[in-house]
Simulated scan of single mutants.
Amino acid sequence: MSGSCYTYSQQLMGTTVSLQLFVENQQAVAAVFNTIQALETRLTVNRDHSEVMSINHAAGKQPVAVSKLVFDLIRQAKAASLLPHSCFNFAIGPIVKLWKIGFNGHSIPPAKEIAHRLTLTNPHLIELDQAKYTVYLAKAGMEIDLGAIAKGYIADITRLVLAQYGIYQAIINCGGNVLTIGCSPLTPNQHWHIGLKRPFAKADSLLGILHVQDKSVVTSGIYERYFMLNEQLYHHIIDPFTGYPLDNELQSVTIISDNSLTGDIYSTILYGFGVRQGLNELEKHKDMGAIFVTKDKKIFIKSNQHFQFELLADDYELCQSFIPEQTQ
């Protein structure tokens, strides 16, 4: 347990991005935040101009050439979108813009408009040319949205930037995506302690603490962005098959994995699956663990030895005896 801790933060990607280092290195800090800013500029759909928006503006017209970096991320996003029964869909842009959840002017869209826009969200209609790094949206009105994957990708790139400066102990927090790099100099067993937020509570109210080493921790939860209408909660995790917010037994899913991009993808996919099917799916992914938190305040854990979880909230129940049934 040695060394000083240096924390730096900036407002980027619509959230507070914070970096914790254990050596003072202003060059590394500047490189990290400059890299994040440059990547955000390429990937955002919240501004008129970016590489992603150039693809969206050309929907139904012509393919658009992008940088290798953006092409590679889009290729991975398409692959995740085409997994069987995947609730991850990077072509969901038209539906996200319709609901405006987390932005001003949110409301429940007309069913007819949702049905129309669903016809513009088929990931199969996005054509990629690996030789030319071009992306083509085959129907006018289609829009890709990398919001569900960009933070994880950027966190992973940050690890590479820090390695260029010889830094192998750090935490990067991209507002819900936490990447721990190396082992912690702050605790006797060298585990990082990462707080898991209590749903629908104050920002500093914790459900529990994860003990991890050199892992990414990513949470998808219905309490992150939502609005209430007639005592009904409408959250930002949209079901790509219905066009409405996903409605199941879950409040949140947290994925613990080696990299943050994987966490981003599977926190959405497993949230869509629900507890039983999600636990079954994890049997195929020994490199990942997960924490499922249900609306009736039960917590189901599949650690695969990647982390320990310490429960703090006494009104939640840790259900470690859950036996997932075989899926049909």
Rank of each mutant, 00 (worst) to 15 (best):
L207E: 09
I237R: 06
P123Q: 06
S220V: 10
G166P: 14
H85E: 15
S18N: 05
D315W: 04
I323M: 05
N46G: 11
R276H: 04
I194E: 03
L179K: 12
V135S: 06
P109R: 10
S252W: 03
G274F: 14
I74V: 15
G93T: 06
S2I: 02
Y316C: 02
I172S: 08
L98H: 10
A30I: 08
T158Y: 03
G105V: 06
I74S: 08
T254I: 09
T187H: 11
L186H: 04
M228C: 08
T35D: 14
I194H: 01
N173L: 08
Y6K: 07
L160N: 11
M1T: 03
T16D: 00
S260K: 00
F227L: 11
D247M: 12
V217N: 03
Q320P: 02
E127I: 13
Q232A: 08
Q62W: 08
S252H: 05
H193D: 10
H49C: 09
N230D: 14
R225N: 12
A155Y: 08
L146S: 12
E40C: 02
I181N: 11
L207C: 02
S67R: 01
T187M: 13
D239L: 09
D72W: 03
S184G: 06
P245W: 03
L43N: 04
S252Q: 13
Q11D: 12
V275I: 11
K100Q: 15
V29A: 04
T254L: 09
H124L: 14
D156Q: 07
G182S: 10
L118K: 00
Y234L: 13
G147I: 02
A163W: 03
L118S: 01
A131S: 10
S67C: 06
N56F: 01
L120Q: 00
S50N: 10
I237V: 10
N259G: 13
G105S: 10
I194S: 02
V52P: 05
S216P: 09
I144N: 01
N248D: 13
